[in-house]
Write a protein that binds this DNA or RNA. Structure first.
Length: 888
DNA sequence: CTAGGGTTAG
């Protein structure tokens, strides 16, 4: 009996030894081969069905991504499986992404009346979360509560995570708040939930809260907070986190480093990002993808493709890499490489992926291979809204609107229309200026409930404005709950387009008070307003707010300054630009032109050609115009010649107009008329207009009358030409003709632009109309005008009454000249500024000859620099002369 | 039980 006991003890001891060594080798098995060997030993010993080993085997196979083997082990014990075995198989399935199966097993287990324990739930909850099965999730949550496991830490963490993945952050927070015990995982689950759902502010807030509670962040915490810093462009917090990573030694964690990499790209800090990547000891596919994608986002497409080639040799790219590089191909319009990548996808056995196919559609469209786009689209097994939208976008880009509307119809029937579709369709109606289509889409938008989407609303504001329905545009604008930068840019452009500059200026001011930062588009939008009001201050303030300074922005700023009366600032911006395109050079040439610096314009033109930038037809308008305003006839004609001979550009009406201007301004009226008669195009009103205004200034009345007749034949809608013609008849004293023209203007429903001038003093704009009597300091201004008149007479000034265009007595004519709006504005400026301060006046029409003379006198008598910008150009009056050299 | 990288539009 004693020996038996001894034997039995020995047997047990042996067993125990066997058990523990088997268990140890099972746990430490690191290859499939080892695992299979240990498995067969377990079978030989008949231990396969033991609760302990079967469970371990199931888990171990799951670790080796072999759920089939896990399943076969479980299958042998399933009729009598206990809770431990059930837990193992559920966990194994969950870890291998077989969530539906895992939930199925949970159901079976409950049916068999096997009571789950606290180890069952985390996996089950995970599966619900992964499947976004909200209903099941709630059932499981109830089960947890019924079993009294509501305060379990692990289950609580899993539930917080589950609600976060459902996007229900309120529920997640409620769960978190109700937990009696919390650890770093609980905080991580909450923080990553906020971060993943784009609630970056909250993610940062809870992160800081966790730090206050003394929780030590780990790699999970950091990689959840980094995207929040990136998203908010919160550089300070991001750098703090980077320091923390270095301090607690998390930088060896790939996920953390990838997070840092991605964040620095979002900060646009390429050097820092590159350093992170280069210093990484271990890199994975995500690291490469983040790098390639980051270069792409910074528009360094060539480099992004080069990195892809570098990666291919070391790492197998995945679908995300492919999509990044395809995007780069699209931007570079590199069809050849695009096709290469497409082939690589086919050969590499990549499963068809909706996103990848969508980008292929877009890439081919950008490379102008519409058929290839359509082929990808037609072959797609399942298309999402993005696929449809991308295809529609292809047709929009290729102006095939019929096909766009066809696809849109199908989308409507299939209920696939989303906000992006609406925006694109709105852009179609904008491009076609089709109000009816626009209104129809507006109705659909309301029906579909997209009328609270900012981008959709912005598009509607734009659409109505461009269709000429400014009132509807403003209505949409006013009904919007939030206005972003684009909203403001759009509404400002809308105001400008409808001619309401005052409202436009008010909008800009409101935008600034609401703290919205301007961008390149803002500069482009306010350009016409700044030049209308010549508000250099407004322009400068906007300029100061620009932080991303690319070529188009620089071009816009050059143009803005030149139109606002600061050639100096234009030159400064031009000099600072490292990259200059045709537009940059052209802007600079026309700036010189406006200030009568023909010589400098010509030099810039030569410099431009020397740096290899090819002039286009706009450049030639600018350079001929510049010559014309400086009296450089020979040079201007040479440019006109060059344009056809050297650059093979067919002159358009505006070029002919420039040449006519060039000749006639220099008094070569007959030559100009001959030139018009010999041109191959039918001369339009602008060409006759150029000649006519020159006739007027040079006093060639005979030709003027002939030309006036030709202008009236054009039946233009621009009142300016009628006014010009009428002025000729006024000079000739043919008042009947004058009245006839005025009548016909009214009959055509046109209105003459009333002349006005304005000046900005101490951040306020003062506007003066011709003969205005109701403005501040009217008395003082009138008195000053009288005094200056007296002084001018002493210097030898005689009024040139030819510039009065009304049938009145001589004395009255003199008075009428005296109240031309620019004279009032100048006098007002003299009164309200310190002695010697330069004045800057703007005028909507061209300066009349008499005012030009008067201003020269004034600049001398009052010792002031006076800059006048009229409808055409700038005149800088100084010491009795004008920068235009009387070419205007 | 918790983390990182991708597509269309104004």
């Amino acid at each position: 009996m004693k020996t038996t006991t001894k034997f039995s003890t020995l047997h047990e001891a042996t067993n125990q030894f066997l058990y523990s060594s088997l268990s140890k080798s099972l746990s430490s098995a690191s290859t499939t081969k080892q695992l299979h060997r240990i498995h067969s030993i377990i079978i030989t010993l008949g231990l396969e069905k033991s609760s302990f080993f079967s469970g371990k085997l199931i888990s171990k196979y799951a670790q080796f991504k072999d759920p089939k083997s896990s399943f076969s082990v479980f299958h042998q014990v399933s009729p009598t499986a206990n809770v431990y075995q059930w837990n193992s198989i559920i966990r194994a399935l969950t870890h291998n992404g077989l969530f539906t199966k895992a939930l199925g097993f949970y159901g079976k287990m409950r049916k068999l009346d096997v009571l789950p324990d606290k180890c069952t739930f985390p996996s089950v909850i995970n599966s619900c979360a992964a499947l976004v099965d909200i209903e099941m999730g709630q059932v499981v949550h109830e089960n947890v509560l019924k079993m009294g496991l509501g305060s379990d830490l692990y289950i609580g963490n899993a539930l917080v995570d589950m609600y976060a993945r459902f996007g229900c952050m309120d529920e997640a927070l409620k769960m978190f708040d109700g937990m009696p015990e919390r650890d770093v995982v609980s905080w991580n689950s909450l923080i990553s939930g906020y971060s993943a759902n784009g609630y970056w502010v909250e993610a940062l807030e809870f992160y800081n809260m966790s730090r206050m509670e003394g929780i030590m962040p780990d790699s999970f915490t950091v990689s959840s907070v980094l995207p929040a810093c990136g998203g908010l462009v919160n550089v300070k917090e991001g750098e703090l986190l980077h320091c923390l990573v270095e301090k607690i030694g998390l930088h060896s964690d790939v996920v953390v480093s990838n997070g840092l990499l991605s964040m620095y790209f979002k900060f646009n800090r390429l050097v820092e990002a590159r350093r992170i990547f280069d210093e990484m000891v271990i890199r994975d596919t995500v690291s490469w993808n983040t790098l390639i994608c980051g270069y792409s986002q910074m528009e360094l497409f060539k480099e992004s493709i080069e990195l892809f080639m570098l990666m291919v040799n070391r790492f197998k790219p995945d679908l995300l890499t492919i999509t990044s590089v395809l995007r780069a191909c699209g931007h570079l319009r590199d069809l050849e490489f695009g096709k290469f990548v497409h082939e690589y996808m086919k050969k590499g056995g990549f499963q068809s992926d909706v996103t990848a196919d969508n980008i292929l559609i877009d890439m081919y469209a950008k490379c102008d291979d519409l058929l290839a786009s359509r082929e990808v689209f037609d072959r797609m097994m399942c298309k999402d809204s993005v696929s449809w939208n991308s295809m529609i976008n292809c047709y929009i880009q290729h102006l095939n609107y019929d096909e766009v509307l066809k696809l849109a119809m199908i989308m409507k029937v299939d209920m696939k229309v989303d906000s992006v579709t609406c925006v694109m369709l709105l852009s179609v109606s904008t491009q076609l200026a089709d109000k009816e289509l626009g209104k129809e889409i507006h109705c659909d938008i309301i029906k579909l409930g997209f009328d609270s989407d900012v981008i959709v609303n912005n598009s509607m504001v734009d659409m109505y404005a461009k269709c000429g329905l400014i009132k509807d545009s403003l209505k949409v604008f006013e009904n919007m709950k939030t206005h972003d930068r684009v909203t403001w840019n759009t509404i400002v452009a809308a105001c400008v387009q409808s001619g309401d500059f005052t409202l436009g200026l008010r909008m800009i001011n409101q935008m600034r008070t609401e703290g919205v930062m301007p961008d390149a588009a803002t500069v482009l939008g306010i350009l016409p307003m700044c030049s209308f009001f010549a508000s250099k201050r407004q322009g400068k303030e906007i300029h100061g707010c620009i932080f991303r300074f690319d070529v188009p922005t620089g071009n816009a700023v050059i143009e803005m300054y030149s139109k606002c009366g600061s050639l100096k600032n234009s030159i400064q911006v031009f000099d600072r630009m490292k990259v200059r395109d045709v537009v940059t050079w052209t802007a600079m040439i026309s700036a010189y032109g406006m200030y009568g610096e023909g010589g400098k314009a010509l030099r810039a033109f030569e410099d431009m050609k020397a740096t290899g930038v090819v002039p286009d037809h706009v450049t030639f308008v600018a350079i001929i115009y510049a010559c014309s305003h400086s009296g450089l006839v020979e040079e201007g004609l040479a440019c006109f010649d060059q344009m056809q001979k050297d650059y093979n550009l067919e002159p358009r009406n505006e070029h002919y107009a420039c040449v006519v201007d060039l000749l006639s301004r220099s008094g070569l009226i007959t030559k100009a008329e001959d030139f018009i008669n010999s041109m191959p195009l039918k001369p339009d009103a602008s060409i006759w207009g150029s000649l006519l205004s020159a006739c007027r200034s040079s006093g060639n009345i005979l030709v003027a009358e002939r030309v006036a007749e030709r202008i009236l034949e054009q039946k233009s809608n621009d009142t300016g030409y009628y006014v010009l013609a009428s002025n000729v008849y006024a000079i000739l004293g043919k008042w009947d003709q004058v009245r006839m023209i005025r009548k016909s203007i009214r009959a055509r429903g046109l209105k003459k632009d009333p002349g006005c001038s304005w000046i900005e003093i101490k951040r306020r704009l003062y506007v003066f109309g011709t003969g205005d009597k109701f403005f501040e300091q009217f008395e003082e201004v009138n008195k000053l005008l009288g005094i200056i008149s007296g002084l001018m007479a002493k210097e030898g000034y005689v009024a040139d009454l030819r510039y009065v265009l009304h049938d009145v007595e001589e004395d009255e004519k003199r008075d009428m000249l005296c109240v031309h709006s620019e004279r009032l504005a100048i006098a007002f400026g003299l009164l309200n500024t310190e002695l010697g301060t330069p004045l800057q006046i703007m005028k909507n029409l061209r300066v009349c000859g008499d005012c030009h003379t008067v201003t020269k006198y004034r600049s001398m008598i009052m010792q002031r620099e006076i800059l006048v910008r009229d409808a055409n150009r700038f005149h800088l009056f100084k010491d009795g002369t004008c920068s235009c050299g009387d070419h205007w």
